[in-house]
Amino acid sequence: MAYPKRFDGRKNDEMRPIEAKAGVIKRADGSGWFKIGKTEAYAAVYGPRALYPRFLQDPEKGVLRCNYNMMPFSGSGDRVRPGPSRRSKELSMVTEKALRPILNLSEFPNAVVDVFIELPQTDAGSRCAGICAASIALADAGISMKDMVAAIGAGKVSDQKVVDLSYAEESHEEGATDIAMSFVHNTKELTLLQMDGDVSKEELAEIMEMAKKACDQINEIQRNALKEKFQAE
């Protein structure tokens, strides 16, 4: 019977309401908060700071270290066990890879920039929310970066191509495809691409175009969040 109308009444290319803030964590060098629908992410940046053990240091450039963590009651079902798991370790890694291309780490060799992403509540799209928050936090920390990244999940629910899937949509009975993507704003370079489900080549191209448009909107919100913080300061 397909999927004529989205569960929450959104248009197919419409995201859930987004809010963002910079500088929410006082003791961090930089921080960001990103909320999309019911998914909420905090990111805190510490550094550049000294990196130990020594063998992790890189004398050519700094190291970026990300940590993705879901809080105990942030899922929609049972209590989530916080801390490193197969899933959270993978997401930490992809977050790192999504952010590294924009950072100019050569300014601080042998040092590290730590990014901690915490999710107090989630409703699908948590890795994307985490990347968006981390991008704000890194800029807030005054780290030299050529651009900002924005990330969004997009895909197919039953036969409809949609952007920003919610958890209910991801678990649609007729099957859903969820593709997490992140783009560097100016160049539209793809820094994250993960998929769960199946799509045809043509559909993928179309979905990516939808995601790019959504990322432009996210970027606008990220920029405003940063400007607001420093304008008020």
Partner: peptide, 8 residues
């Protein structure tokens, strides 16, 4: 003015 990374 305040500028953000990637701003033209």
């Amino acid at each position: 003015t305040i500028v953000v990374p990637g701003e033209e």
